[in-house]
Design a binder for these strands. Sequence first.
RNA 1: GAGGCUGUAGGGUAGCUUGGCAAUCCUUCUAGGUUUGGGACCUAGCGACCCCGGUUCAAAUCCGGGCAGCCUCGCCA
Length: 471
Amino acid sequence: MKNKKSSNFSEWYTEAILSAELMEYSDVSGCMIFRAESIAMWEKIRDELDKRIRKLGVKNVYFPLLIPEKFLKKEAEFMEGFSPEVAWVTHAGNSRLSEKLAIRPTSEAIMYPYLAKWIRSWKDLPFKMNQWSNIVRWEFNNPVPFLRTREFLFNEGHTAFATKKEADEEVPKIMKIYNYILKDMMALPSYAGRKTDKEKFAGGLASFSFEHILPSKKAIQGPAVHQDGQNFSKAYNISFLDQNKKKQYVWQNTWAISTRNLGVMLAVHGDDRGLVIPPKMASKKAVIIPIYNKNTKKEVLKNANKIKKLIPDSFVDNRKDYSPGYKFHEWELKGIPLRIEIGPRDIKNNQVVLVRRDTLKKTQVKIPALKKTCKQELENMHKNLYTNALKFMKENTREAKTYSELKQILKKHGGFVKASWCGSQKCEEKIKDETGAKITNLPFEFQKNIKGNCIFCNEKAKHIANFAKSY
RNA sequence: GAGGCUGUAGGGUAGCUUGGCAAUCCUUCUAGGUUUGGGACCUAGCGACCCCGGUUCAAAUCCGGGCAGCCUCGCCA
């Protein structure tokens, strides 16, 4: 690694991801190549989410990539929110298409006309579907691996209910699943909360999100659940006859987690030696590095292979012509959670040298205890990564009692700033204009016993908001 | 979409101010040999001036335009 995380985060991040072979730039700016190891991580998220949403009765579907322009225009606010970054297909071969087709920036517009067709009766509800898709949002900002790619992957859950109550009840269930993925798989802390009306999803009623902090002390949005209310159902005429034969519009939710979160995870946990993959996200959890010479080679390799069988998701790096030191560096860069070194000296003592990627601490472990120790160390590593990340987030969450304090903290430290807010969009906008910080969300955990006055207008405060400059 | 900085082999670089390149060094890669407890060594080899124009006898170097990367700002997941 040429760059240090602490002194040059952006370049460290790009260097680590490219050299760990997770991603490659393609010739189309912003459209990046997700290489095998990053897709393997994405698949872990996918599998876990699938497993959990299936239990809620959600079924996977697949809708077309291309959306007719007229579909997209049905919901005005939504269209307006996305139109600057929609990519269009205008030609087939040399002939111009009679209607241009949008490459989906998200799938509401292609899904909902058909939902309108499929949902007729109260018996058709609730209707719960999910799609794993690639979408294109043609941003004009600098693309950054995972964090900002023009094409990215996400899940998009789309559910429809007969009543607002049912739609409301789904929100915490989905939030809980996302929280599991963030906290228990990716070792990522976050502030979960409600978006303000200004920041919510275009065309929706309310949005709930998880907000993370990057090492650069900027906030970045994680997964989100949007309550669309009846905005889309009215625009796309998704209605049903209720038990009283009365026409009703459905209440809808959408929810998503994207490949951006992989970037957040890599950025948060990595160090000056490269990436650190949280154990539950690593498809290879341990690398076994044999150390031998001509005379001991056979013996060492034999023992290394035995250990491979002992430790789940481990592999032996038996490449010739690479010194052990070279291999150490390579796997540290790639972030494999555990390294097991085994050489003649270890074999003699019936032990190995175990090194954890996060602490880099070496311990000698007797082979009979190795399986258990590895399992334990992987758990400890997960806890340690989460604890450190949480500590960083908390250290970078400050409280502002006055507006000038807010400005000062943002300027001096960055990160999140807790401050009381009256709830008016006017104050929110003015603060954003003047400081560059927006309300990332209104964290659930901050909303108890609200006292005091709005930091900006001094009216009675309704919320404690998290302000931050965001990615 | 606006501004600033940058662009030389797979990666990292020297050269650019003052045009003379037939392009420096390290690393990776390929072949062979010797090695292997924290990026081993020897020998041989492959590999680049972002693109398009212009100025000039001559352009990596100067000029114009594009594209791409990095950093701010707006927007987003």
